[in-house]
Structure formats: structure tokens, C-alpha cells
Computed example of a mutant assay.
Amino acid sequence: MSDVEKKIVINATPEQTYNVLMDFPSYPEWNPMVLSIDGDTSPSSTLTVSIKVGARAPQSFKPTVLKNEVNREFRWVGKLLLACLYRGEHYFIIEGNSEGGCTFVHGERFSGVLSSPLNNMMGEDLPKAFEAFNNALKERVEKQDASAVSS
């Protein structure tokens, strides 16, 4: 397995989607993949991220924020020891559409000499985890949008 990218259409605005995506304290309520994120979201800042992929034990790492463009994109990069061994650039992109909703793009680009063996060990668990994240985000955003409309 190499890079992973999953897309989903969310029936809510880019602003609504971004607000849920960046509400890290609420992740335990809805997010099956990213259990927690702590830290400053400004570029060059370090986050502490805890994830769960498949049946594996949760793991934590400390990626560096590369980009945080409000209502549009959030991106970080993590590495294992040295970037030449294993590097993953994780991204979330929100693209508005003409119907008033958005397409949410969730992906990761891998590089380094250990990227193929480590990713192959995960098999289909990683793409499935990305899909589960996207589906849960869609449900959360659309549910919040529906409750805001009915209020």
C-alpha cells in the first residue's frame, strides 16, 4: 500500500465542516480513528495525536503542523526517527461545491525506506480507518447542521 486518499460529499458548508474538524475536544464523541489531538494548530507548531487503526493498540505521535487555512485545509507531517526512514504528510482539504455543500478530502502521502513495509503490515486497515473517519465526520457535521436548522 502506498498513499491513501478518501473523499466524501458533506451536505454542509465548508465553514461548518471545518468547525467540526477543528473541534479536537469533541473527537472522543464521534471519531473512530483519531482519538485525540492536542496542541496549537499554527504552522510549525507540534501536535500530540493519538490514533487507532483497525484492531491495533492506539498509538501516539507528535507531528508538525504544515498548514492551517481556515475553512479550506489542515495539514501536518509526522516522521519515525528520521524522515528518510518514514514520513507521513496527513491532509484534510475542504472544497466547496455549487450545491452549498462540500467535498472533504482526507489523505496521507508516505515516503521513506520503511514506508512500504510498515504500510503493507496495515493492509486495508488504514484506508478503512480513513473511510470511517470521513463517514463519522459527515454524520457529525450534517447532524449539527440539521439541529441548527430546526432550532
Rank of each mutant, 00 (worst) to 15 (best):
Met1Leu: 09
Ser2Tyr: 09
Asp3Cys: 03
Val9Ser: 14
Thr13Asn: 09
Pro14Lys: 08
Gln16Thr: 00
Thr17Val: 13
Tyr18Lys: 04
Asn19Gln: 15
Asn19His: 12
Val20Ala: 01
Met22Trp: 05
Phe24Gly: 05
Ser26Leu: 08
Glu29Thr: 14
Val34Ser: 02
Ile37Thr: 14
Thr41Val: 15
Thr41Asn: 10
Ser42Asn: 14
Leu47Asn: 03
Leu47Met: 06
Leu47Gln: 02
Thr48His: 11
Ser50Trp: 01
Gly54Phe: 09
Ala55Gly: 06
Arg56Met: 13
Pro58Thr: 00
Pro58Tyr: 03
Gln59Phe: 06
Ser60Arg: 13
Pro63Val: 09
Arg72Tyr: 13
Arg75Ala: 01
Arg75Gly: 00
Val77Asp: 03
Gly78Met: 07
Leu81Met: 14
Ala83Pro: 13
Cys84Ile: 15
Leu85Thr: 15
Tyr86Pro: 05
Tyr86Ser: 06
His90Ala: 06
His90Lys: 04
Tyr91Leu: 04
Asn97Ile: 01
Ser98Pro: 00
Glu99Val: 00
Glu99Ile: 00
Thr103Met: 12
Phe104Ile: 08
Phe104Met: 07
His106Phe: 05
His106Pro: 02
His106Met: 06
Phe110Gln: 09
Phe110Pro: 04
Ser111Ile: 07
Ser111Met: 07
Gly112Asp: 07
Ser115Gly: 06
Ser116Leu: 09
Ser116Gly: 03
Leu118Tyr: 04
Asn119Tyr: 05
Asn120Ile: 01
Leu126Phe: 15
Lys128Thr: 08
Lys128His: 07
Phe130Pro: 04
Ala132Ile: 03
Phe133Asp: 01
Asn134Met: 03
Asn134Asp: 15
Lys138Glu: 07
Lys138Gln: 12
Glu139Phe: 09
Arg140Trp: 04
Ala146Val: 01
Ala146Asn: 07
Ser147Gly: 00
Ala148Gly: 10
Ser150Asn: 12
Ser150Pro: 06
Ser151Lys: 14
